[in-house]
Design a protein around this nucleic acid. Structure first.
Lengths: 343, 343
DNA sequence: CATAATTCTGAATACGTATGTGAATAACTG
DNA sequence: CAGTTATTCACATACGTATTCAGAATTATG
C-alpha cells in the first residue's frame, strides 16, 4: 500500500486497469462493466480512497459548493449576528447537504468587497446573500454581481422597484397588515411602529406600510409621530421605545419591525414602569428563538426560516444549472403569545 | 479582452511575459522586478482576474480552508442546534477569516461517517469539531481521525483519560465549583444537579464533580437523590426538574448542567407554583444569549466563546503547519443575574 | 466463416496554477 | 575588456481528475 494519499492511479494499478476506467467506475458510468466496477470499488474502499475535490473541481469547473454570505451593517460587533439569520443558517446548511453541496460561510461588512470574490475564485458555484443593511450600499454591489453574471440568490424584498436579482423573501406587507389587524381587533387605538420606514430598509418599510394600510382602513390614528426609526438591534429598540415614551405621544401598542427591536422595547417599557400588555401591547417580527423566551413572551409575525432555507438553496441550484428561477414570496404568519394581550 | 474567465496566461500575454512570471508576481515573489510586478498587477486588476483556487489548491496541496463540523445527538431536529455553539460559530468564522482561511460548515449526526471525509478530499486542511454527544459514540471516531493523521481540534474536556486529540475546553470542574460556592454563600443547603453525570458526558460530569466537591467541603447534602439526568435541551431540563419536584426530595437550589436545561427547569418550577429565586435558586452553564432573556434572568457560568473560537482556530492552524500544539483550558466565569437570589 | 454491431477499455489530453532549473541579460569588479 | 555575480525571466513539468476519441475484445448476424 502506498504511503501517500491514494490516487486513482494507485487503484488502477491494483485493479489492473487504467486510471480513466477507475474514474468512470467510481462515477457510475454505464460504459464500465458491472464486474470491473465492483472490483474497483472494493479496492477504493480498502485504500480509503477519496476523490480529490480540487482536481475534480478543476477538471469539471464545478465545486459543488455554495457560499453563504452574511453581512451586517452598521454594527458588526461579535454579538450582533441577526438571530433570525442564524436560524436560517441551519436550514440552509441542511438543505445544501441534502443536495450534495458543501457550504462555505463568511461574515462580511456590507461595505466591504465581498461581491467580487467567491464564485470567481471557483471555490463556490454560487452565492446566497443574507443580511439587513442600508439598501443604498447594497444596491451597487448587487448590480455588479448581476453584471458579472455571478449566480446568486438573496433574502430580501420581493417585487417592486427594489428587487435586484433573484430574491426570496416573506410577505412583509401582509405580515405588517396581520400584526396591525390583530392589535386593532384587540381594541388598540394608537399603534406605534418602531423601525426605519425609509427606502433604505425596504423590508421594514413594507412592514410599516402593511400595518399603516390596515390602521388607515380601520379609521385609526396614522400620525407620523407614531413611527420611530430603529435598526435591527435590541439596543436600538430600547432607545426608540424610550424616545417614544418620552415624547409624550399617546400610544397603546407597539408594532416592532423585528423581534430584537421588540425585545428592546419591552425592556424600555418596563423600565418606564408601564405594563405589557396592560398599558402597551407589543408585537414583533421574525419569531427568533428569543421571542418565546421574552417576558412576556412576544407575539410576533413568523417568517418560516426552514422553508426559506430550502427555497434559497433550491433556487440557487436552479440558477447554477442554467435553468430559469423565479423570485419567491413566502407567507408570513402571526404567532400569538402574551405580549399582545390576546385571550 | 477574452470572453472566458481570465487566466494567468491571458495576463501573461497582455503583459508580454510568461505565465510563471505572472504567478510569481501576484504571489509577491522577490524574484520578479518591482516594475513588472506593478504592470502585471494592473492588468490583473483590470481583467478582474482571480486566482483559481481549485488549481492553486491542487498544486500546493493546501486549500486554506477549515471545516467546522457540528454534531448533534440524540436530537438532530431543526431547532436543536446548541445555541452556545452557534455563538462560537461567529467567533470561529471571524478568526478564520482573519487568518485568511475559508470555512466550510456542516451539521452531522454523531453516528454518521463524518470522520472520514473532509480532509481526505482535500477540501479542507483541517477540522474543528463542535458538539455534545455520547462519548461512547464519539471516541471511536476520534481514534480513527488520529490514526488517519487528520488534523483536527475539538471542543471538549481537557485533561483526564477522556482527552483524545488536541482539545480546547473550559474549566468545567472549576465552573461547577464556583456555581456551587455561590449558592452556598447565599445560604442554600440542598443543591440539586440537573444533567447526566456519567462518563458518557464528561463535561457535564466534571461540572457535577466540581459542584459536588464544593458542597461536600461545606458539609452539605450530597445525596445522589439530588442528581437527575438530563441532556442538553430545554425539554429535557423541564422533565428533569419536574421529576425532581415530584420525587419529594427537598431542595432549595438547582445547578443545571447547561443554560438550556436551566431554562427548562425554570419553566417547570414556575409551572409547579414555586418561585425563583424565593423557593428555588437556579444557576445554569454556558451563558447563551437566551440566559439573560429568561425570566428571571439566569445566573450562569460563562464560557468565553469568543476566546474559544480564536484558540480553536489558531491551534488548528498550528497543527496544520506541523507545529506542536497543546490542549488548552479556558477559565469559566460566574455571571450573577437574578435567578440565584444574590443582592 | 467473414463481417457488422456492440461493449468495454486505454492513450492522450485539458483544467489553471506553482515551482525547480537553467538561460539570458544587466551590473559590477579588477 | 574579460570574468564574475546578481537579477530577471522562460521552459518544462507536476498536482489528480474527467472526458474525447479510437481501438480491442466480444458477440451477433448473414
Amino acid at each position: 500500500m502506498p504511503p501517500h494519499k491514494p490516487t486513482s492511479f494507485d487503484i488502477a494499478q491494483l485493479a489492473g486497469v487504467s486510471q480513466p476506467t477507475v474514474s468512470r467506475a467510481l462515477r457510475g458510468s454505464p460504459s464500465v462493466s458491472e464486474q470491473t466496477r465492483k472490483r474497483i470499488e472494493a479496492i477504493a474502499q480498502q485504500l480509503n480512497y477519496k476523490v480529490d475535490k480540487n482536481a475534480s473541481s478543476l477538471r469539471t469547473q464545478r465545486s459543488n459548493t455554495l457560499a453563504l454570505l452574511f453581512f451586517e451593517d452598521p454594527t458588526p460587533d461579535e454579538t450582533g449576528i441577526n438571530p433570525f439569520f442564524l436560524s436560517m443558517l441551519a436550514s440552509i446548511t441542511r438543505t445544501a447537504a441534502r443536495r450534495n453541496h458543501d457550504l462555505l460561510i463568511s461574515f462580511q461588512q456590507l461595505s466591504a468587497n465581498w461581491h467580487v470574490d467567491y464564485e470567481d475564485s471557483r471555490k463556490a458555484d454560487g452565492i446566497i446573500l443574507l443580511g439587513y443593511g442600508d439598501y443604498e450600499l447594497y444596491q451597487p454591489k448587487l448590480e455588479q454581481l448581476i453584471q458579472q453574471g455571478t449566480h446568486f440568490v438573496r433574502w430580501g424584498l420581493v417585487g417592486g422597484q427594489d428587487e435586484m436579482g433573484t430574491t426570496i423573501g416573506c410577505d412583509n406587507m401582509d405580515g405588517g397588515r396581520s400584526a396591525a389587524e390583530h392589535l386593532i381587533a384587540l381594541g388598540r387605538k394608537d399603534i406605534a411602529f418602531l423601525g426605519d420606514a425609509s427606502d433604505h430598509y425596504p423590508e421594514f418599510r413594507d412592514r410599516y406600510l402593511g400595518a399603516r394600510n390596515a390602521i388607515f382602513a380601520a379609521g385609526l390614528n396614522i400620525s407620523g409621530d407614531l413611527q420611530v426609526d430603529a435598526f435591527n438591534t435590541e439596543q436600538s429598540g430600547f432607545d426608540a421605545a424610550q424616545q417614544l415614551i418620552n415624547s409624550g405621544v399617546r400610544f397603546d401598542a407597539i408594532f416592532a419591525a423585528s423581534d430584537l427591536i421588540g425585545i428592546g422595547a419591552i425592556r424600555a417599557i418596563e423600565a418606564a414602569g408601564l405594563t405589557i400588555p396592560g398599558d402597551i401591547a407589543v408585537i414583533g417580527f421574525d419569531d427568533i428563538p428569543a421571542a418565546s423566551l421574552a417576558h412576556p413572551p412576544l407575539t410576533t409575525v413568523q417568517q418560516d426560516y426552514r422553508a426559506a432555507g430550502e427555497v434559497l438553496v433550491d433556487t440557487l441550484l436552479k440558477l447554477i444549472e442554467g435553468k430559469s428561477a423565479e423570485s419567491y414570496t413566502l407567507p408570513a404568519k402571526l404567532v400569538v403569545r402574551k405580549s399582545c394581550g390576546a385571550h
